[in-house]
Design a protein around this nucleic acid. Structure first.
Lengths: 145, 145
DNA sequence: ATACATGCAAATGGTTTGCAATACG
DNA sequence: CGTATTGCAAACCATTTGCATGTAT
């Protein structure tokens, strides 16, 4: 069985949730895409397949997937919202260019370690995290000069 | 002159913004509070003083203060939004308990350093950042056992 | 059986926008 | 003076909710 399905089922088991056709389809569809996506587009896409999915169900499932750490939410400075799968269940962080809007990814194990230690120091049990850095990308910085 | 006022004026100068009575009052009022606050409450509070402040102006100013790094935005898992001043202009990060909703702060210089390096590595010029860790605080973890 | 999940449409709530009036540089 | 800013109310848009029906366990 695919790893993300297994993880989701484990999560649902732990939290008293039920495994449903819709939830699995939504997860599968999200995991087919490697890049970030908007919910509205996603709903169009998944509805085009076969079943009908209500907006409510998609959002309800997204919330659970977030909790389960299987997807990440990305917020732009101007309020746009994207989601994306968590590659290999290893969360990565985002740099958002305030000028062109492009989104870059960074992955730093050392940061993970430090944050885990910081949490442990006060007995906090982390479930998932969100790290966004807003600024200007190289292209936009040099273009301005 | 107070440091935050000075920083804000510098920021406005750089970005072609104007220094207005409202902006300064909003900044001052925010800096009187050390804890996080909701915008709606804030508007009530500042309106109670002397002037009228439109919701729009408050939001427009908040956006500029965010860009200037003078305040930080906090997002709870269930969508509540708080803002708070950035103490001494040193951004700190937030741990949010998904059970009791309490918000903890952490400050780790080493994380700052690592992130700065990661940005520099791809030529990204960071302006401000948002780092939230969601999970369970010590009290809620032990209470559950 | 009996919770939990779904779909629908309406509601929510934070934030933004258009426009005319006003104030900064 | 010209341009950014303000206030107002209406608009926006992501997300949530109430309720009747459906379904996993």
């Amino acid at each position: 069985m695919k790893k993300h399905i297994q993880l989701f089922e484990e999560y649902l088991g732990k939290t008293g949730g039920r495994v449903t056709q819709q939830k699995l389809s939504i997860l599968e569809e999200i995991y087919k895409t490697r890049t970030h996506f908007e919910v509205e587009d996603f709903i169009d896409r998944i509805r085009a397949k076969d079943k009908k999915f209500s907006r409510a169900t998609v959002y309800r499932t997204i919330k659970q997937l977030l909790d389960a750490g299987l997807i990440q939410k990305i917020l732009t400075r101007d309020g746009k919202v994207y989601y994306e799968r968590t590659p290999d269940h290893h969360p990565h962080d985002h740099l958002l260019c305030n000028v062109c809007g492009k989104i870059f990814e960074i992955k730093d194990e050392a940061v993970d370690t430090l944050l885990s230690q910081a949490c442990a120091a006060i007995g906090f049990r982390p479930e998932y995290r969100s790290l966004h850095i807003y600024g200007q990308c190289q292209r936009c910085t040099t273009a301005k000069l």
